[in-house]
Computed example of a mutant assay.
Amino acid sequence: MSVAGGRKKGVAFTYDMQVSWLRLYRSENVGPVTFRQLINRFGGAEAALEALPELAERGGRRIEIADRGAIEAEFDRAKKLGAVFACMGEPGFPSMFASDEHSPPVIARMGDPALFEQPAVAIVGARNASLSGIKLTKRFAADLGAAGYVVVSGLARGIDAAAHEAAISTGTIGVFAGGLDMPYPPENRSLMRRIVDEGGCLISARPFGWEPRAKDFPRRNRVVATLALGLLVVEAAQRSGSLISARIANELGRLVFAVPGSPLDPRAGGSNKLLKDGAILATEAADVIEALRPLDEGRRSRGNDSLDEPEVLETFEEPAGDERDRIYEALGPTPVSVDDIVEHTGASPGAVQLVVLELELAGRLERQRDGTVSILL
């Protein structure tokens, strides 16, 4: 079963299949890219789980495999909360995730999953937003909703909360940085409840009971950007999570919009810089709608499929002779591409991919966002 493109839609998993997928995803050192490689190599989560210990030991250390009991406890917590899990390839899983191999292969969700198949715009900005920024955000969100766009954001204070609130009646998706049972910030708990009760959707890739940490917010920002055709920054300081979201959106081929602000307001420093760097100027929703129209029409013509999908991953092969040693020697603390390793060592792409996978599972290798890899010293 190949999952690299995420095209197999509409097949509901059994409970045991969902548990196995979540066990694999929750196991130590198994990120989204590694998860997809394991499923493609072994044909399913159960077989991948059986192979994990040997693969990691070949990479240099033992790893912890997620306990089935702990995963079943997550399912129990989800049921009590009124949430469900959705795996890549199932109904109710975001089709836009197919365009990014770093997207989570399993999510927990509450609310209406039909919103995943509608065109969406992400709106992000400052937590300490100005009154004019909040007012403008609500206008953008309401107008975009009236034009048929779902509004996606990260449930934070300020701009995020204003965007969700204005789009509740037309459709909004909120992305958690922690578990679905760990609302953050707590003062937005009532807003989150309204989103679910009034036809919106909340999602998380983190375990139930997981309190969000600093490094979880960039991961959440990536999900926000991935779900949308474009991302609008209303207010953002020079150093802010919104600029991370904009960078990710740009990397994914999404359109990035920014609202200009006063040079005297530090909350506009980041958004003004985005405009200098090539973001699309937006002063009203019509600016966003007009720019997104070609992408939206193209998506609709493909039957609501995602944007361009990643290529199918390479087939794995056992290294021959001294290939494993040559691959080890080619790796270092400076990131290099797999193609360069193949060219330098003369090993097959499949052999290089397998050794990289083993080292990654052992926690000895880091995979960069651009696909390059480096040894952790």
Rank of each mutant, 00 (worst) to 15 (best):
L155F: 10
E74D: 11
G82C: 05
R369V: 07
M17K: 09
A205N: 09
S169A: 15
I39M: 13
R206G: 02
S271K: 05
T283P: 04
P218I: 01
E358L: 13
D197A: 15
L136E: 10
L377P: 15
E366G: 09
D160L: 05
V3R: 01
P91Y: 13
I159C: 12
G346Q: 06
K138S: 09
G298R: 08
P183F: 01
A285T: 09
L155G: 01
V233W: 00
A142F: 12
A286V: 11
A114F: 00
V84G: 06
E343Y: 08
F42Q: 05
N29I: 07
A70L: 10
R7H: 12
E198Q: 14
W21L: 12
L155M: 15
P333I: 04
G6V: 02
I341L: 12
I107P: 00
L255N: 03
H102K: 11
R58E: 12
V84K: 11
F257N: 01
E57S: 12
S130T: 15
G5E: 14
F35I: 06
A70R: 15
P207I: 01
E74P: 07
F140R: 08
F217A: 02
R77N: 02
R23V: 11
F75I: 13
E46K: 11
R157W: 02
S130Q: 03
R189K: 14
S245D: 07
P212S: 13
K8T: 11
F13C: 10
S271H: 07
V336E: 09
Q353W: 13
S204R: 06
E54V: 11
L38G: 02
R299P: 04
N188F: 06
A351N: 12
G332S: 12
D308F: 12
G350F: 12
V338D: 05
A73Y: 04
D143H: 11
A214R: 15
G371F: 08
V312F: 10
P94E: 11
L191Q: 10
A78G: 05
A291Y: 10
G253V: 04
A78P: 00
S262W: 11
P94H: 04
K273E: 15
G241Y: 02
P319V: 08
D67I: 04
K79A: 15
E358K: 09
W21F: 14
F176P: 00
A146D: 13
E290N: 08
K8P: 00
F35C: 04
G154I: 05
L24R: 06
E165T: 05
F257V: 08
T315M: 14
V234W: 01
S190C: 06
F217V: 00
A78Q: 01
D112A: 08
